[in-house]
């Protein structure tokens, strides 16, 4: 069966996000009251699998995220 997968990988709470800090500052310069901006990474793909949850979890652990510094979440929808 074919699935549409979206994975979001973010830095763990408390870890400094330099890119987010710079973008947040730039928004502040445009006079928005932005605080604590973080930049997660998003992956979208199609997956042929009988076991999508297990496989996606494994992909995150093996490559898409670094478990030491990242947390992740995903959504898996059937492709009609």
């Amino acid at each position: 069966m074919k699935w549409r997968v979206t994975v979001t990988v973010r830095l763990k709470e408390g870890l400094n996000d330099p890119e987010g800090r710079v973008i947040g500052k730039a928004l502040k310069n445009l006079s928005y009251s932005v605080e604590n901006l973080r930049v997660p990474k998003c992956f979208e793909f199609e997956l042929e699998s009988d076991n999508p949850e297990e496989e996606v979890e494994e992909m995150c652990r093996k490559l898409l995220a670094n478990p030491l510094i990242h947390s992740w979440e995903y959504s898996i929808e059937p492709v009609s």
Binding site: L15, N16, P18, E19, R21, N66, L68, I69
Partner: peptide, 16 residues
């Protein structure tokens, strides 16, 4: 570090 041969991770510099 990415291969797991050394512990830890190398993150973007504090000043980006």
């Amino acid at each position: 570090t990415e291969a797991g041969l050394l512990s830890g991770a190398l993150r973007p510099n504090k000043i980006p």
